[in-house]
Amino acid sequence: MIVTFTINGRSCQIDVPGDHRLLDVLRVNLGLTGTKEGCGEGECGACSVLLDGQVVNACLIPVAQVDGAQIVTVEGLEAAGGGPLQEAFVALGAAQCGSCTPGMLMSAYGHFLESLRNGDDPQDREGIRHALAGNLCRCTGYQKIIDAVSKGYEELARMPSLPPAAPAPQTGHNDPSHGGGPGHGSLTG
């Protein structure tokens, strides 16, 4: 079936069986391999992406259900406003092997957006721990991840204009790492 959605700010149309996992469409059809598969059953969060501003596991989403949706993956996180989190992860040593990192970042940013929407304080440390509970990390003990998320939120809060809840459109269309992979997806700006 033909599914149309926005990925990292660009619109995308793709012809795939509707039950295919969003994760495979991203990784195989669109060549966006930043989103990882750690379990394929919703337990580890390595495949976390933002779907209409909410964090979800791409391994549990049939692509038919994202028709018309806006998706942000780690490749589009910076453009969507999550850069400060990425910088904090590097600075504070929150990424070790890096397998959980893309998913962790998407959850962290999802929690920030969620807090903005609900008028909650994203900085609450227990709140951060809960927000990341669906993302397993085996390397770090989560300590540096939580520290980095907290620092990233600080930077985000300092930004003159808070990022839009929906991802900002992205420029830079012809970067091969952003699509046109081996699959049959077509991306239009």
Binding site: D19, L60, I61, Q65
Partner: peptide, 28 residues
């Protein structure tokens, strides 16, 4: 029927040979 798919998609992976012929999404 598939709503959020958080059970259905797990079965689909666990028993790929036994899935249904069609899914009916209720998400929309």
């Amino acid at each position: 029927p598939m709503a959020g798919g958080t059970d259905v998609m797990v079965w689909r992976r666990a028993a790929p040979d036994e899935g249904p012929a069609a899914y009916l999404s209720l998400w929309g």
